[in-house]
Amino acid sequence: EALEELLKKHRFRYRRALIISESVFSMDGDKAQLAPLCELKERYEAFFLLDEAHALGVFGEKGLGLSEEEGRLGEVDLLLGTFGKALGSYGAFVVTSQTLKDYLINKARPFIFTTALPPLVLAVTKRALTLLPELKREREKLRGLSRFLRAKLGLAPDDTPIVPVVVGSEEQALTLARRLEELGYFAPAIRPPTVPPGTARLRISLTAAMEEEMLAPLVAEIRRFLAENS
């Protein structure tokens, strides 16, 4: 609704408009509503840039992200992704039309002055992309782990690999992160200004290599901490 109000108020002033969103939001682990975003893009003749960094490899029949999962790939003008995270390499990419590709090559200063990725990294990335469509079982397992952990922690249902545990103060977030690290879990504390004041949290990132049993001590410690500080 806020985006639509902005477009109603300001779109007529500009020749072009660009709608930008993540598909899976990095701090809350929730999903963007792609259908209304695509509808607004069409209605207001805007470009749509979608960052699939946290959805690539996790969603879609071939692991291409939330836009593939929801049948919206053809409606995204610039699809941004990373070779890190699910692909286990590094670097990034954008999928777009030939016209926009030529524009970015000639006008995107950070790209122009960036050196090429090392050949070894490119080989790893190429292999990961080849494997991606075959990892359906791993995707299903990962999303199941997310549903399991969220249910155990009393969080809203979802199936993204990012599970936030909001504790409130920075001190509490740091304390809980240290306690979990002592148990062998790396769950970094996310504090302002990355998140709003009063919403410091632990950001738990799941992988398909985990099992439900591995998460039991983590769940118990988080529950214990929240009970002590409620």
Rank of each mutant, 00 (worst) to 15 (best):
Q33L: 13
G60P: 03
G63N: 00
K9C: 06
L56Q: 05
E221G: 10
A35Y: 15
S21A: 14
L87A: 13
K8C: 07
L135G: 12
V167W: 06
R223E: 15
G63K: 09
V165A: 04
L202Y: 08
L120C: 03
A92G: 14
Y185F: 15
A200V: 07
L176S: 00
E5Q: 15
V58K: 00
S26E: 13
E181K: 06
L226K: 09
A128C: 00
D102W: 11
E1P: 14
Q172F: 05
R147E: 14
A151W: 01
K107F: 08
G184D: 09
A151Q: 12
L66V: 08
G91E: 12
I222Y: 04
L3P: 03
E69K: 13
T114G: 11
K41R: 15
E171I: 06
F47T: 03
V167R: 01
E42F: 03
A2W: 07
L64R: 15
L37I: 12
S205Y: 12
V219E: 00
L226R: 11
R191H: 01
C38P: 02
G65H: 04
L176G: 03
D77H: 13
E182Y: 02
I162F: 11
S97C: 01
L183G: 04
L34A: 13
A17L: 06
Q33I: 10
L176T: 01
Q98E: 13
R147L: 11
A208E: 09
E22P: 09
E211V: 00
Q172R: 15
K62T: 15
I112W: 01
M27Q: 12
R11K: 10
A128K: 04
L104P: 07
Q98A: 11
T175P: 06
L135M: 13
P217V: 02
G63V: 08
F12K: 12
I204E: 00
L129Q: 01
R179H: 10
L174N: 04
A216E: 07
S169C: 06
A55N: 03
R191C: 14
E138Y: 05
L131Y: 08
